[in-house]
Simulated scan of single mutants.
Amino acid sequence: MSLFRDVILCADDYGLSDGVSRGIVELAAMGRLSATGAMTSMPGWRRAARDLAPLKGRIGTGLHLNLTTGAPLGAMARLAPAGRFPPLKELLAHAVRGRLKGAEIRDEIARQLDAFEDAHGEPPSFVDGHQHVHVLPGVRGALLRTLRERGYAGRVWLRDPTDAATSILRRPVGRAKALVVKGFAQGFSRDAHAAGFMTNRGFSGFAPFDLSVPAGRIFDAAFSHMGPSPLVMCHPGYVDEELRGLDPAVESRVAELDYLKSDAFGALLKEQGIRLVPGP
């Protein structure tokens, strides 16, 4: 019997800005992360993709599908008529009302996958979504169809951002966010498995994007009451002007970065017998 508990610790938003990407690479090189999701529609991806090459085989590198920040990689007359993605609230409204155009979403997913492969030299090991957009109505089906058409079934795993309600409620941080996402993602793992894709089982890491909760408390909660094949998301990075203009999570990224580099986090992993792994 293994003495370790395998957990995926995934840093979101690689490529969002140079500071975010640099922080993620530093943590991965230290063994303090086991996966990262790349925002290949952002200009920062093309600048930072080569820095992941030395980490191949050490961490899982996936596509962090983006439909809410910056610009799409091609024309999207329905979703982004002015050439910019809508904010999450607007995308949600389109999704729940059935107003997303499937072909348009599939084309953008394909472009972001192409951008990943062109820069990284191989398919992603997993796919998830910036602000969990990959589970939304009108996006979910388009994603599964596109991945199957590219022959990714059985080769790529998908992130399920849900957890048991009992686990969510027992964690003192991020409950409201976790329950909202669970509602939107209902049935995602079932649909993914039916299409031939593996998923994680157990998900945590929801937290406020400010300094109201210390990073140590966030990760103490995230690494508690975990599922049988759990994934913990995080958002570390350095702050730069590019980041300030793109995302509401700013100073909290530095707090997470510092904690994940710290002896305290090393002690948490050791005390709980946690081994960071790149996939389920």
Rank of each mutant, 00 (worst) to 15 (best):
P86I: 01
A95L: 02
H235E: 11
G279N: 03
T36F: 06
M42C: 00
D220A: 15
A267N: 14
T69L: 04
G266T: 01
E271S: 01
K56Q: 15
R22L: 14
P43V: 13
H130T: 01
T199H: 04
Y14M: 09
R99D: 09
L16Q: 11
M233V: 12
D12C: 05
F219Q: 10
E90K: 14
A29K: 11
V156Y: 03
A38D: 08
A165V: 15
F4N: 13
V277W: 06
R99F: 00
V156N: 11
C234D: 07
N66F: 02
D240T: 05
T61Y: 02
R150S: 14
L16F: 11
P86S: 02
R159A: 10
A115G: 06
G205H: 12
S204N: 13
V96G: 01
F206R: 13
S252G: 12
R201N: 08
R22D: 01
Y238P: 04
S224C: 13
E122V: 07
D163G: 15
A142V: 06
D118C: 07
T36P: 05
A119D: 06
M39I: 10
S204I: 09
F206Y: 15
N66Q: 10
D128G: 14
F219Y: 02
G154Y: 00
E241P: 13
R253G: 08
R244E: 08
L276W: 03
A267C: 14
